[in-house]
């Protein structure tokens, strides 16, 4: 199990450095590898270049909204298979509906506890 988890690499796309760090520490404590990007462009670049097994995606990103990034990932043949969890501080119900319509596997509203995040990621890999 630990070995499987170690193979999993999670890309976190988040512009708030504190939240980026928190998510990264939590997932690494859970045995996952993490890749970090402070904006969507950087995130896509990383996803193209490295093995990414899951993306934790914020929506309110600088320069390009998370929706744009999600649309691009889902329309890229090499990337569309990557499960995406939308991780946003926007509690709008429209955001949730939109996230799932665009292909997200889960939708988390900040603030989330470490436990919630852990469970969410575990569920993704269990189902995936």
């Amino acid at each position: 199990m630990l070995r499987k988890k170690q193979q999993k690499q999670i890309l976190i796309i988040e512009d708030e450095s504190d939240l980026l760090k928190f998510s990264s520490w939590l997932l690494e404590a859970e045995g996952y590898k993490t890749l970090q990007a402070a904006d969507g462009e950087e995130g896509i670049k990383i996803a193209r270049q490295q093995q990414v097994d899951m993306i934790l995606l914020d929506i309110r990103l600088p320069h390009r909204y998370g929706w744009d990034i999600m649309a691009e990932i889902k329309s890229t043949p090499d990337l569309r298979h990557i499960p995406i969890v939308v991780f946003t501080a926007s509690a709008d119900i429209e955001y949730k509906d939109k996230a799932f319509k665009m292909g997200a596997v889960d939708f988390l509203v900040k603030p989330v506890s470490a436990e919630t995040l852990r469970k969410c990621v575990a569920a993704v890999f269990k189902n995936g």
């Binding site: 504190d18 939240l19 928190f22 501080a89 509203v109 506890s113 995040l117």
Partner: peptide, 20 residues
Amino acid sequence: SHELRTPLASIKGYASLLLM
């Protein structure tokens, strides 16, 4: 709503991280 939730997310996240 978004702007208030962002620092709250840090507080909640790190607090739970420290606890767990």
